Simulated scan of single mutants.
Amino acid sequence: MTSMASDLARALDRGRWFADASYQPDAWQQRAATSSSKRQLWNVHRQGGKSLTAGVKAIAHACEEPGAPVLVIAPAMRQAAETIRTVAALHSRVSGLPSIVNQSVHRVELSTGSRIISLPSSEGTIRGFSKVALLILDEASRIPDEIIAACRPMLAVSDGEMVALSTPRGMVGWFYEQWANGGDGWERVRVPVTECPRISAEFLEEEKRLLGPSVFNQEYLCEFVADDSQVFPNEVIAAAFTSEVTPLWPQ
C-alpha cells in the first residue's frame, strides 16, 4: 500500500495505527482510538495500555493536522518525558510518516509544523499555549484541579479534543467529579483488570494480598474508594446539602 493510501486509511480508521505499528490492541484501545467524541474520560486499570492509546491519539492528530499543537499534561517530569518516548517509538514503527525535525525530552516536532509537547503539571510551564488540537491529561486524578482549569481555555478557539486518562484516586478531585457528576458531555470508558487478557490471575491474587482490598479495587478494578482519613463518608456529606432552601432575599 502506498504512503498516501496508508495515510488515508489511518485517517478514516485510527485503529489502524496499532496494526501499522505492529501492536495488537485490546478492544477498549481500538474503541478509544477511533472515538469521535470531543470529551473522553478513560478510567483504566494499572498497566492497561492507557499511555500507548494516548500516544496513538497524539501522533494521529499531529500527522493528520499540519501545524496542530498537541499538548500532554502529566503529574510529574518523568511521566511527561515517558509520553514523548511513546510517541517517538510509534513514529519509528510506522513508515511513511512526516519526519521528525526537532525532538527533545518533552517535545516532538514534525516536518508539517505539528508539535507534540508533554509537560509536568506546573502552572508556569503550561501557560501560553493556544489553539490546541488535542489536550491529553495523563493520570488526571493526580493533576491539581487548578492546573486543569488553566488548561481548558486552550481548546476554546480550536474546539479541540480533550482526553483525561487515569486510575482513580479517591472520591475527590476533578477526575472523580467529572466521572461521577460531569453529565452527558463526557464519553466514559471504564476498563477493570478483568477485561485484560495479559495479566495473570496469580499476579492479581498476590497484588490483592499485598495491597489490601481498598487499594486493589482502586488500582485494578477502577473503583473510586473513599479516603480512610475522612471523618464522614462522601454520601453522608452530600446528603447534608439541599437546593430546596427559601432565599433570605427573594428576587
Rank of each mutant, 00 (worst) to 15 (best):
L90K: 05
P168Q: 07
A180M: 13
S243E: 12
A80Y: 04
A21H: 03
Q103F: 01
I117V: 15
T2M: 08
A133H: 10
R127V: 09
R85M: 08
P144G: 11
A5N: 13
R39T: 02
S121H: 06
L155I: 06
Q40D: 03
A238W: 08
T194E: 07
V132A: 06
A239Q: 09
G182Q: 08
V191A: 09
I116P: 01
I136Y: 10
D26I: 00
A81C: 05
V172K: 14
D26F: 11
R31L: 12
T2K: 12
A19W: 02
G49H: 02
C222R: 01
Y220G: 04
V87S: 06
D26N: 10
F224I: 08
S141F: 03
K57V: 07
G15V: 04
A19Y: 06
A149C: 00
I100S: 03
K50I: 06
A9K: 15
A60W: 09
I73K: 10
Y23C: 04
Q24V: 13
G48Q: 03
A9H: 12
S37E: 06
M154T: 07
G212W: 11
A33Y: 05
H61V: 15
D228M: 05
S122G: 09
D145P: 00
S36C: 02
E65Q: 13
S229L: 11
T125K: 15
T167E: 04
R78T: 08
V225A: 11
T2I: 01
S166T: 08
K208P: 00
E244S: 13
P69H: 09
N43A: 08
W249R: 14
S200G: 06
S243Q: 14
A180W: 05
S111Y: 01
Q218M: 12
R198Q: 11
V105W: 10
I116L: 11
S158M: 13
A76H: 12
K208R: 14
P75Y: 07
E235I: 04
